[in-house]
Design a protein around this nucleic acid. Structure first.
Length: 424
RNA sequence: GCGGGCGUAGCCAAGUGGUUAAGGCAGUGGAUUGUGGUUCCACCAUUCGCGGGUUCGAGUCCCGUCGUUCGCCCCA
């Protein structure tokens, strides 16, 4: 077989599904716009260094999941695996901090990670993300989370769970890391191989394990919340108060650790029970060190990203897409009539209707049948007789009522068609 | 990167070593040569993702490969 197929982990979004995407995008634009977030569009590829420095060399995303290649100028290029690094780069490069105050940005678009595809996970996938730059106030965390929650509920998604944690600042995390390693080291030989490996690389992630024995060991492990400095703890408290004040339910999960290095303080995930293993629909948190890390001024920031494919899987479960339908279906037969059919269609479109022209040239009966299938409210009919008289028959499919209209009056007449006739 | 399931027409599928590859939807043509939503009739896979092997014989068994799906890892 020599036909070319879409690459593994990529998917065409076909007309049958596009309605979900358009709905999702329109809703995001509306909800984020209402919250004073402005859209930003950054390139889909960047210097590899941006991601290596931003996301962290030791992370899986950077270590084994990036699409990295040399371009013709021998630059190391990477297809963006996530949106935050690019947004931060743009924030710095365009000196968006110079406009003073707080920048609220959002984006959506394709991201690329070389992973094994499974439900809700592809190699090219799409995210909607939001970032708030320039505020260290816990209210910024609350606002960011609230916008995410608003978007999900505007989409009609129910029974989602918000999990919340604080990973503290750099010092807190370092202190906790030492405590955790000290606790786990005696159990070293009982840990599963992955966790054993993480003991030196990324011990916090061990808490997230699914291996039963490792979980048992972790039950009595020190909690990160207990390792927070008084300031960090106070800050976390205020985030929780803010959420409570907005009536946003959450559960504390002190094993929640985000996989990208840049997170500090608040970390959160929004999960669904209906997605199998890829349950996280939105993930985010605070990343106060990232802007300066990438060469910008010391800038606090908080943000999140949602997986659009996962959202659409959920949308498909709650509401089937309505079949697209057309107002008029133009039926014609004979050379003159077939030509006139095109101009009749144009006139009806000018009058504001959606119109599909039958191009098959088959018998009237077949054309009507297709008109029906297309969900048309009415057929515009042109045969030899109509072509000779410059008229057109309009037949309302529901009632069967049919009237003849002169083509020269069609625009005026069409503008005043009875709205009732369009209700199905 | 690792492990399990699956791969028959545009779609949903039956078929588990014997040979004429069920059926349904959709499509095309006709009954109805200018009028639909119903009905009836006919047509619609030299071939079962691809390549190889076992066998007198393979869609059915084996190996490889590609794809897909579920899980691990990781993440949205």
């Amino acid at each position: 077989m020599s036909t070319i197929q879409a690459l593994r982990g990529t998917k065409d979004i076909l007309p049958t599904d596009i309605g979900y995407w358009q709905h999702l995008e329109a809703t995001a634009q509306q909800i984020l716009g209402q919250a004073a977030f402005r859209e930003i569009r950054t390139p889909m590829f960047e210097q590899t260094d941006l991601f290596a420095r931003g996301i962290g060399e030791a992370t899986d995303v950077v270590g084994k999941e990036m699409y990295t290649f040399s371009d013709r100028g021998d630059r190391s290029i990477t297809l963006r695996p996530e949106g935050t690094a690019g947004a931060v780069r743009s924030f710095i490069e365009n000196k968006l901090y110079g406009t003073g105050g707080i920048q609220r940005l959002w984006y959506s678009g394709p991201m690329f990670r070389y992973e094994r595809p499974q439900a809700g996970r592809q190699r090219q996938f799409h995210q909607i993300g939001a970032e708030v730059f320039g505020s260290a106030d816990p209210r910024a965390d609350v606002e960011a989370i609230a916008v995410a929650v608003n978007l999900l509920s505007a989409l009609g998604l129910k029974s989602l769970k918000l999990a919340l944690n604080s990973v503290g600042d750099r010092e807190d995390r370092q202190r906790y890391r030492e405590k955790l390693v000290a606790y786990l080291t005696p159990y070293k030989d009982e840990l599963d191989p992955d966790s054993k490996d993480r003991l030196t690389r990324n011990p916090l992630r061990i808490l997230d394990t699914k291996v039963e024995r490792t979980q048992e060991i972790c039950v009595d492990a020190p909690s990160i919340v207990d390792a927070l400095s008084p300031d960090s703890a106070e800050r976390f408290e205020r985030v929780q108060q803010g959420l409570a004040a907005l009536g946003i339910d959450y559960t504390l999960d002190n094993r929640l650790v985000r996989g990208l290095d840049y997170y500090t303080h608040t970390a959160f995930e929004i999960q669904s029970d209906d997605l199998g293993a890829q349950a996280t629909v939105c993930g985010g948190g605070r990343y106060d060190g990232l802007v300066s890390e990438l060469g910008g001024p010391e800038t606090s920031a908080v943000g999140w990203a949602m997986g659009m494919e996962r959202l659409i899987l959920l949308l498909q479960e709650i509401q089937p897409l309505s079949e697209p339908s057309v107002d008029f279906y133009v039926v014609s037969r004979g050379n003159q009539a077939e030509i006139q059919a095109l101009s009749v269609a144009q006139i009806l479109r000018q009058a504001g209707y959606s119109v599909e022209v039958d191009l098959s040239g088959s018998a009237f009966g077949k054309q009507f049948k297709r008109g029906d299938r297309a969900g048309a409210k009415a057929c515009a009919i042109l045969g030899d007789a109509e072509a000779d008289n410059n008229t057109v028959q309009i037949k309302w499919l529901k009632s069967g009522e049919q009237t003849e209209i002169s083509q020269s009056n069609l625009l005026e007449t069409a503008k005043s068609f009875d709205g009732n006739k369009f209700k199905s």
